[in-house]
């Protein structure tokens, strides 16, 4: 079994060692994704994961902004009341209620 210091034959502190280690880790992670998802094409497993991540993005955005921008200004309340009234009138006329 290889010891960490002898991996790639480079001293553990050197930048090249860290880069290679990171690259190896990335490759191992990619292999793991391919094995777990059973999909070889990065365009497909990539989008499979991106779909889940984008839904997560929506969830995080929703949680962070859950209570933001809820307050209406006084003028907006007036406008909305008038707007709602005319909307209701239009609906009444349209559906005959």
């Amino acid at each position: 079994m290889l010891h960490a210091t002898t991996l790639h034959g480079l001293p553990q502190e050197s930048p090249q060692y860290v880069c290679r280690l990171a690259r190896d880790c990335n490759q191992a992670a990619l292999r793991l994704v391919i094995i777990v998802l059973g999909i070889d094409d990065p365009w497909i497993w990539g989008v499979y994961l991106l779909c889940i991540l984008s839904a997560l993005l929506c969830v995080i955005y929703g949680i962070i902004n859950w209570n933001r921008e809820g307050e209406l200004e006084a003028i907006e309340i007036k406008e909305e009341a008038a707007w709602e009234e005319s909307e209701e009138e239009m609906q009444k006329e349209e559906i005959g209620l």
Binding site: A55, G62, N67, E69
Partner: peptide
Amino acid sequence: VKSNRELNRGVLIGGV
């Protein structure tokens, strides 16, 4: 919708 808050919250539910 009545305020932007509904849209913020809607993003969470809509995405899922």
